[in-house]
Amino acid sequence: MRAIDGVVSVNNPDDKPHLTLVEYRPDKVDSKTLLEQVKTEGVHAKLVGL
């Protein structure tokens, strides 16, 4: 995901290894695009908002 233009950081917290936190610039990429990119890799993923 780090290779996607607009992604600032990707983090997997030690206490929640099933969770991936992605910080991104919404002026460069949107959450739907990021989700679809992950799904093309065969990974089960959902968007979770704050």
Rank of each mutant, 00 (worst) to 15 (best):
M1D: 13
M1A: 14
M1T: 15
M1N: 13
R2Q: 14
R2D: 10
A3I: 05
A3W: 07
A3K: 10
I4C: 05
I4N: 13
D5N: 07
D5V: 03
D5Y: 01
D5K: 01
D5E: 04
G6L: 03
G6V: 02
V7L: 00
V8Q: 07
V8H: 12
V8D: 07
V8P: 05
S9L: 09
S9I: 08
S9A: 15
V10H: 07
V10I: 11
V10Y: 01
V10W: 07
N11A: 15
N11T: 15
N11Q: 14
N11K: 11
N11C: 04
N12S: 13
P13T: 12
P13N: 10
P13L: 07
D14Y: 08
D14T: 09
D14S: 13
D14C: 06
D15Y: 05
D15V: 08
D15G: 06
D15H: 09
D15I: 05
D15K: 08
K16I: 04
K16P: 02
K16R: 15
P17F: 05
P17D: 05
P17I: 02
H18K: 12
H18L: 05
H18Y: 12
L19T: 14
L19F: 11
L19A: 12
L19S: 07
T20R: 03
T20S: 08
T20C: 07
T20V: 15
T20I: 12
L21Q: 14
V22F: 03
E23H: 09
E23M: 10
Y24I: 05
Y24P: 10
Y24C: 04
Y24K: 05
R25T: 11
R25Q: 13
R25V: 06
P26H: 13
P26F: 03
P26W: 00
P26C: 06
D27G: 04
K28F: 02
K28W: 01
V29L: 00
V29N: 00
V29D: 01
V29W: 00
V29R: 03
D30A: 03
D30M: 06
D30S: 10
D30R: 02
S31P: 01
K32P: 00
T33F: 01
T33E: 08
T33D: 03
L34F: 06
L35V: 04
L35F: 00
E36D: 14
E36N: 14
Q37P: 00
Q37W: 08
Q37E: 10
Q37L: 05
Q37C: 05
V38R: 03
V38A: 10
V38C: 01
K39V: 01
K39E: 11
T40Y: 00
T40K: 14
T40D: 12
T40C: 02
E41K: 14
E41Q: 15
G42M: 03
G42F: 08
V43W: 02
H44F: 02
H44I: 03
K46E: 13
K46L: 10
K46S: 12
L47S: 13
L47G: 15
L47P: 10
L47Y: 11
L47R: 13
L47A: 13
V48A: 15
G49A: 11
G49R: 09
G49P: 04
L50D: 15
